[in-house]
Simulated scan of single mutants.
Amino acid sequence: MNQIAQGADTFSPLRPREKSRAWQVGAVLVGTLILAVASRIEVPMIPVPMTMQTFAVTMIGALYGWRLGAVTVLAWLAQGALGLPVFAPSGAVGIARFFGPTGGYLLAFPLVAMLTGWLAERGWNGSRPLRAFASMLAGNALCLALGGAWLAVMIGAGPAFAAGVAPFILGGILKSALGAAALGGAQRFTR
């Protein structure tokens, strides 16, 4: 069996595929709690605040895999749509948040978790730090592209890039490096 196929079988130190449905439901609940906490770690900016949400989303994707990662992020989005205080504190509440300036970023999150999870399942995980970094970076780039596109519809392409993409590029790179390091540490810890 080649290395990538082996990585696909053991992509995560959590081994979510080997766990029971009850464990997976618990993982979804823990993941939504982690996302809610990450949403509260915020640097207020206009029109889009900088938070640790993308770090949490990419980590959940990488640790849970593309399916369970997407389910976790969708559950968190559903909690926010119902009005639970799981999103960043600034902005509209409930379903209205999806129609504001941050809506595109929020709607991108399940796709980001799917992308990083899909890549992790193919060996872009903690056992390969550069690939893990590239996976996290791809997730952050996807989020900025989709969120920036949504914002561009609202305020125009130039202002959207200036306010909703450019200020977040360095943060995306740093969060990607932190994510790759965390995955590597988790991989070594569970060996």
Rank of each mutant, 00 (worst) to 15 (best):
A166D: 12
L142V: 11
W150N: 11
A162G: 07
G147S: 10
N140A: 10
G164H: 03
L151S: 09
P167L: 11
L170K: 15
G158D: 15
V165L: 00
M136P: 00
R131L: 08
V153A: 12
N125P: 00
P129D: 00
A152K: 06
L130M: 07
P159H: 04
S127R: 10
A157I: 14
S127M: 08
L142P: 05
V153M: 14
C143I: 09
N140Y: 08
A166V: 11
K175Q: 15
L142K: 13
L144T: 03
A149T: 10
I169Y: 04
L142S: 07
A132I: 04
K175N: 13
A149W: 03
G126Y: 01
L130N: 04
N125M: 02
W150R: 09
A163V: 12
G172L: 12
G164C: 06
S135N: 05
S127G: 12
L174Y: 12
L130Y: 01
W150M: 07
W150T: 00
R128W: 09
V153T: 14
G148V: 06
L137S: 05
F168H: 14
S135W: 01
G123T: 12
G171A: 14
L151V: 09
A162H: 10
A157W: 13
F133R: 10
M154L: 15
A162C: 05
F168E: 11
N125W: 06
F161I: 13
L137V: 03
M154W: 04
G164D: 08
L137H: 03
A134Q: 11
L144Y: 07
V165M: 12
R128H: 01
G147R: 01
A138I: 10
L170N: 09
V153W: 15
G139T: 02
M136Q: 13
A145W: 02
G156R: 10
G126E: 03
A160T: 02
W124G: 05
L174W: 14
I155T: 08
A152G: 01
L170V: 15
L144K: 06
L137P: 05
N125T: 01
A166C: 09
G172S: 12
A149S: 01
G147M: 13
A157K: 03
N125K: 00
P159C: 11
L146A: 12
G147T: 07
V165S: 09
A141D: 04
I173V: 14
A149I: 05
I155S: 00
A152M: 01
A145F: 06
A138Y: 04
A157Q: 10
G148T: 01
A166T: 07
S127C: 02
R131P: 00
G148E: 04
N125S: 01
N125V: 02
A162Y: 07
G171C: 11
A141V: 10
W150E: 02
G126A: 06
G126I: 07
A134P: 09
I155M: 14
A134S: 05
F168A: 14
L144Q: 02
L170Q: 12
V165Q: 05
G126C: 00
M136V: 03
P159S: 12
L146Q: 10
P129C: 05
G171E: 05
G148Y: 11
L142E: 03
L151I: 11
F133E: 03
N125F: 03
G171Q: 13
G139A: 04
F168K: 15
M154K: 15
G148A: 03
L144H: 01
G147A: 08
I173A: 15
A141G: 06
C143F: 13
